Simulated scan of single mutants.
Amino acid sequence: MGARRTRQRLDILQHLSAAPDFISAQGLHARLAQTGTLVGLSTVYRALRDLERAEQVDVIRSEASGERLYRRRSTSEHQHYVICRRCGRSEAVDTDIVERWAAHLDQLTGFSNVTHTLELSGECMDCHL
């Protein structure tokens, strides 16, 4: 998980893994507090930053609030999600064509170390009704 594997960081990782969907740093901090785990909010932010750098989480930006939301990555590859604008439900989507295109951008443009962000949103079937 990055720098140090403290008890607090292990608790953060456990609670993040148990979250049913994407969660904000503040939401994760609140869940930790509800279970009696005393972790500072700055520690939560640092741990999430370290997890992101270690490619152990997927990160999206909330369309409503603009804040970053985190989810424990279930595979070794990053995934893209379509997010419901109303309830926040997420669904992983197959974006192989985007990944192949992004992998060749360095050859097409001359840029190196190209990274990308893809944000997809809509309304899930439950909210659309």
Score class of each variant (00 low, 15 high):
residue 1 M to R: 01
residue 1 M to Q: 06
residue 2 G to S: 06
residue 3 A to F: 01
residue 4 R to W: 02
residue 4 R to H: 06
residue 5 R to F: 04
residue 7 R to G: 02
residue 8 Q to S: 14
residue 8 Q to A: 13
residue 9 R to T: 06
residue 10 L to Q: 14
residue 10 L to A: 09
residue 11 D to K: 08
residue 11 D to C: 08
residue 12 I to K: 03
residue 14 Q to D: 13
residue 16 L to A: 07
residue 17 S to G: 11
residue 20 P to R: 09
residue 20 P to G: 03
residue 23 I to P: 13
residue 25 A to V: 08
residue 25 A to N: 11
residue 25 A to K: 11
residue 27 G to W: 08
residue 27 G to L: 09
residue 27 G to H: 06
residue 28 L to W: 08
residue 31 R to C: 02
residue 32 L to G: 06
residue 33 A to C: 04
residue 34 Q to Y: 01
residue 35 T to G: 10
residue 35 T to R: 11
residue 36 G to E: 09
residue 37 T to F: 07
residue 37 T to H: 14
residue 38 L to F: 06
residue 38 L to R: 15
residue 38 L to A: 15
residue 40 G to R: 12
residue 40 G to W: 08
residue 44 V to G: 00
residue 45 Y to G: 03
residue 45 Y to Q: 12
residue 45 Y to C: 09
residue 46 R to V: 12
residue 48 L to N: 09
residue 48 L to D: 06
residue 50 D to F: 05
residue 50 D to K: 03
residue 53 R to H: 11
residue 53 R to T: 13
residue 54 A to G: 10
residue 55 E to N: 11
residue 57 V to K: 04
residue 57 V to S: 08
residue 58 D to M: 11
residue 60 I to R: 04
residue 60 I to H: 00
residue 62 S to K: 07
residue 64 A to I: 08
residue 65 S to D: 11
residue 67 E to A: 14
residue 67 E to D: 12
residue 68 R to H: 15
residue 70 Y to K: 13
residue 70 Y to P: 12
residue 72 R to C: 10
residue 73 R to V: 07
residue 73 R to T: 07
residue 74 S to H: 12
residue 76 S to T: 13
residue 76 S to Q: 13
residue 76 S to G: 15
residue 78 H to Y: 14
residue 78 H to K: 15
residue 79 Q to T: 06
residue 79 Q to E: 15
residue 81 Y to H: 10
residue 82 V to H: 02
residue 83 I to Y: 01
residue 83 I to S: 01
residue 85 R to A: 05
residue 85 R to C: 00
residue 86 R to P: 05
residue 88 G to P: 08
residue 89 R to I: 01
residue 95 T to D: 12
residue 96 D to C: 09
residue 99 E to T: 12
residue 100 R to E: 10
residue 101 W to C: 00
residue 101 W to R: 03
residue 103 A to N: 12
residue 103 A to D: 12
residue 105 L to P: 02
residue 106 D to G: 15
residue 107 Q to S: 07
residue 110 G to W: 07
residue 111 F to S: 05
residue 112 S to T: 15
residue 115 T to M: 00
residue 115 T to R: 10
residue 117 T to F: 02
residue 117 T to Y: 08
residue 118 L to C: 04
residue 119 E to Y: 10
residue 120 L to D: 10
residue 123 E to Y: 11
residue 124 C to K: 02
residue 125 M to K: 01
residue 126 D to M: 03
residue 126 D to Q: 08
residue 127 C to M: 01
residue 128 H to N: 04
